[in-house]
């Protein structure tokens, strides 16, 4: 593997890892629940990258079979199916989390986790 390919591969992985750890940082370090949910959502998008960047093949194209070109190279369709499932389930879980945030805000008047734990609400 000559240098540009090596660099592209590792640049992609490094950015993916950076995004993953940064969204984990948001989840752990921020006490605002909406921001925590944003962090969870971003963490999920980094998983899409981790699955889909190996599924791209050099010279390959979108996995929709072309009748007139037998023997064409296609990218791997299986991770795309899995991630398609993950996105829609992700928005469903996100909406459940947001509904919990709305209920917590109605009961306690705050969406900050630290204020909830201190008990001065």
């Amino acid at each position: 593997m000559y240098f540009p390919d090596w660099f592209i591969v590792h640049y992609s992985y490094m950015i993916t890892i950076f995004l993953m750890v940064s969204s984990l940082y948001i989840i752990v370090m921020r006490s605002n629940m909406i921001k925590k949910l944003v962090g969870l959502n971003l963490f999920q998008t980094t998983i899409y990258l981790l699955y889909l960047s190996p599924s791209k093949i050099t010279g390959g194209t979108v996995p929709i079979i072309m009748y007139d070109k037998p023997g064409a190279i296609y990218s791997n369709p299986l991770p795309q199916v899995l991630i398609l499932t993950a996105i829609v389930v992700g928005v469903a879980t996100l909406s459940v989390g947001l509904a919990l945030v709305v209920r917590i805000n109605e009961e306690f008047g705050t969406i900050e986790e630290d204020e909830l734990f201190d008990g001065n609400v």
Partner: peptide, 16 residues
């Protein structure tokens, strides 16, 4: 299912 669920979730959030 997806149309009903997404619109229902939106109604639930905005109606509140």
């Amino acid at each position: 299912t997806v149309t009903g669920t997404m619109t229902g979730i939106f109604y639930a959030f905005v109606g509140r």
